[in-house]
Design a protein around this nucleic acid. Structure first.
Lengths: 112, 112
DNA sequence: TTTATATACCTAAGTTTCTTAGGTATATAC
DNA sequence: GTATATACCTAAGAAACTTAGGTATATAAA
């Protein structure tokens, strides 16, 4: 797990990237996918995740589709076309930011 | 300039890296150096910088040396040996975090 | 059978970390 | 004599989280 400050500010970018790459995902699924992909190094908290999803829905970035699975509710989120553009912008901005930080901190990236 | 959320959480890391690589620096000098090195893409605000420097001094990470330059005061900051370790840890953690994000966001770094 | 864990949603109070918006003062360029 | 640069500082407010709950079903273990 990384220190809290570091992961701050990346939540929307992560959510939008995962949702853009898949048809639809539900909240709990997003937390599990991030945990799996990062080997547990990034673990989204539900207290941060759900309000962010609701805000992005209110802004027209995401739409929802509520499904009954057995007796439980599952709320699927899909990125709108407007959201797709925001997703690309967010990922590009983060990429640019990382390049700047790599230079500033005099680092060599380990991948690529 | 990057969106505010992104730069959040990197302030201490940036300050400690710059101070570790130099003998000593004063607050205003740090803001100018970061602005110069990032081509204006990261601009530290004094409202964030000074309280952070004071906190790190109180924690024994930094020591100060006040100097008179003409009739003006200049407060130089130096990293303590304890601070050097924290600086290395912070930079390493950020480096690791970037590797994780590069994988998660499916990016290719442009440098290295 | 009841207890713990996993699934699946949610909210609200509190904390941290920053931005915004000031204040003080000297030096220099226009 | 007015704006910009240098150089320090603080305090109120905002943003984005964490922490700590609450609700409810399904399943595995004891």
């Amino acid at each position: 797990m990384y220190s809290k400050e570091l992961v701050k500010g990346t939540l929307k970018t992560i959510i939008l990237k995962l949702l853009s790459d898949s048809d639809k995902m539900y909240g709990y699924e997003i937390t599990q996918k991030v945990k799996e992909l990062t080997g547990g190094k990034i673990q989204l908290t539900e207290g941060a995740l759900y309000p962010t999803l609701h805000a992005m829905e209110a802004q027209g970035i995401l739409t929802t589709d509520v499904v009954n699975v057995g007796n439980r509710i599952r709320k699927y989120y899909t990125v709108t076309s407007e959201g797709e553009k925001i997703a690309r912008d967010k990922v590009n901005e983060f990429s640019d930011f990382m390049d700047t930080m790599i230079f500033l901190l005099d680092l060599k990236p380990k991948m690529g």
